[in-house]
């Protein structure tokens, strides 16, 4: 039964573009109207049949002919890279949509795609985590994924990748994230703005344009999170916002890398004990755990 239906669709899949290649007849396309998917021009057709397909559990993966399976894996890899390009999150549902009729085989295809991404592209899909308002609570999964570069550190150090025009934005992001980190992970907006002013970023001639818009983009892309700060006093002082690292930043920039970056900025004549100072500054006072590197220096 199942075999038959797959066989039917496979014939049509061979000579069609992968993503829109479900059973030819009743294919319906739907625009996804999803706010969190801003800027993305990737729209995946949905098959109405997907929900009603009678395939069950693990058996589903085995039931898919090898050729079709190959196609599905490639589709997911492709989708992952495309999504990464627009710096939006890849949601589980998005993967499901690509799989069409074979939604039940998601885990299997996902794992295979993950292998492919690691072996061929030096990347892997990582689940985005949410830390919640407090920022202190345990990270929670979001069923959304993003690609992370897993090339060996030495390769990255050797500037193996040419980031081209992205490089300036990466610099700006790194600097903003560093400001946040050395303030125990939360930075008041007023402090951030005054720091940005010192870097001439509030000037109209700044190459980044309107810096507040830039910040908004970083928030959208989940590099930053912005919270309204509850002021401690009752006098109704003006509302202040604070910035924290966003989920994407947590994936892309390990804290120890940030420490290394700041050290590099200070250069050779860095003050003694800089690393300790950075680490100390980046940890909330109450959760100050003794770090092995700290005692070593």
């Amino acid at each position: 039964m199942d075999d038959e239906s797959y066989g039917g669709s496979s014939s049509s899949q061979r000579n069609k573009r992968p993503a829109q290649s479900q059973s030819s007849g009743s294919q319906k396309r739907a625009m996804r109207e999803d706010d969190s998917d801003q800027g993305s021009d990737i729209h995946v057709p949905v098959s109405k049949q997907a929900a009603t397909s009678g395939v069950r559990g693990a058996a589903s993966a085995a039931a898919i002919p090898a050729e079709d399976m190959e196609r599905l894996i490639k589709d997911v890899v492709r989708l992952a890279i495309f999504t990464a390009h627009s710096e939006s999150a890849l949601k589980r549902e998005d993967i499901k949509e690509v799989l069409g009729n074979h939604g039940r085989a998601l885990d299997h295809v996902f794992n295979k795609a993950q292998e492919r991404l690691r072996d061929v592209f030096g990347m892997e899909l990582v689940e985005l985590t949410s830390k919640g308002r407090g920022g202190q609570s345990a990270e929670k999964g979001t069923k959304s994924y993003m690609l992370k570069n897993i090339l060996p550190t030495q390769l990255l150090q050797g500037s193996a990748i040419d980031w081209e025009s992205e490089v300036e934005d990466m610099g700006l992001l790194m600097v903003i994230l560093s400001f946040i980190m050395v303030r125990e992970g939360t930075l008041q907006e007023s402090v951030l703005i005054s720091n940005l002013r010192r870097l001439s970023l509030l000037e109209e001639s700044s190459s980044f344009g309107d810096i507040t818009r830039k910040l908004d983009v970083l928030i959208k892309k989940r590099y930053l999170e912005k919270f309204k700060l509850d002021h401690m006093d009752e006098s109704g002082e003006k509302v202040e916002y604070e910035y924290r690292w966003g989920a994407r930043a947590r994936v892309e920039i390990p804290e120890e890398n940030m420490v290394k970056f700041i050290q590099e900025v200070f250069g050779r004549d860095a003050p003694p004990g800089l690393e300790v100072a950075i680490k100390k500054a980046s940890r909330p006072a109450d959760s100050e755990a003794p770090t092995p590197t700290a005692s070593a220096e």
């Binding site: 990255l156 934005d169 970056f261």
Partner: peptide
Amino acid sequence: GRMAAKWS
């Protein structure tokens, strides 16, 4: 940025 990219 090139410095930052190494750590990203």
